[in-house]
């Protein structure tokens, strides 16, 4: 964090990330909220890149800004009142109190922690380092995650298929 460029980039990205994250909660239009969410994801990706974590940054863009945002869009499009403004809700005060508490806790924890700086130099190529770690040291969790995804996918397919045949029968 010594050179000026990184500092400028950090603050700019931090403002983008937190500002748009705030806007996600603040705007009344759900589609606008998604767009701000994407912006927030991109800000996080930028932060990763300033930390020399190229791979994680790019994957953040690919998975979060690309895939997760689309998932959210699908969810919103399936929401009956997506295009309309959301009415006032009685949950507003509890929500503010709860998020205030969470923010306080996180802030306290981050101030209280003794942040030690690693003296080991950063990886030159994060991608291959991550690849080696995944397929070597962490092969078991990696495979379990893969199996979990497969199960989830199969489950989704089975649910959809059942519905499809039922629909055909009704026709």
């Amino acid at each position: 964090m010594e050179d000026t460029g990184t500092v400028v980039a950090f603050w700019a990205l931090a403002i983008i990330t937190i500002g748009s994250a705030f806007m996600v909660a603040a705007v009344r239009n759900l589609i606008h909220a998604v767009v701000f969410l994407v912006l927030s994801f991109l800000g996080v990706a930028g932060l990763y890149i300033t930390l020399s974590a190229d791979f994680v940054g790019v994957v953040q863009i690919l998975i979060y800004s690309g895939a997760i945002a689309i998932l959210v869009i699908f969810a919103i499009v399936l929401t009956p009142q997506a295009g309309r403004d959301n009415a006032e809700t009685s949950m507003r005060l509890p929500a503010v109190v709860l998020s205030g508490l969470v923010a306080t806790m996180l802030g306290y924890a981050s101030i209280d922690t003794n942040w030690s700086i690693s003296d080991r130099p950063g990886f030159e190529e994060t991608a291959s380092a991550i690849g080696v770690a995944l397929l070597d040291k962490y092969i078991l969790p990696f495979e379990i995650a893969a199996a979990l995804m497969l199960v989830a996918m199969l489950g989704a397919i089975i649910i959809v298929r059942d519905e499809g045949t039922e629909g055909a029968a009704e026709d």
Binding site: V35, V58, V59, L62, S65, G66, I70, T126, A127
Partner: peptide, 20 residues
Amino acid sequence: LDVGVLFFVAIGSINTIAVF
């Protein structure tokens, strides 16, 4: 970038949001 080609794919996926 050492993840150049992945960057290309990732950036391509942002397009979707703009189109939507």
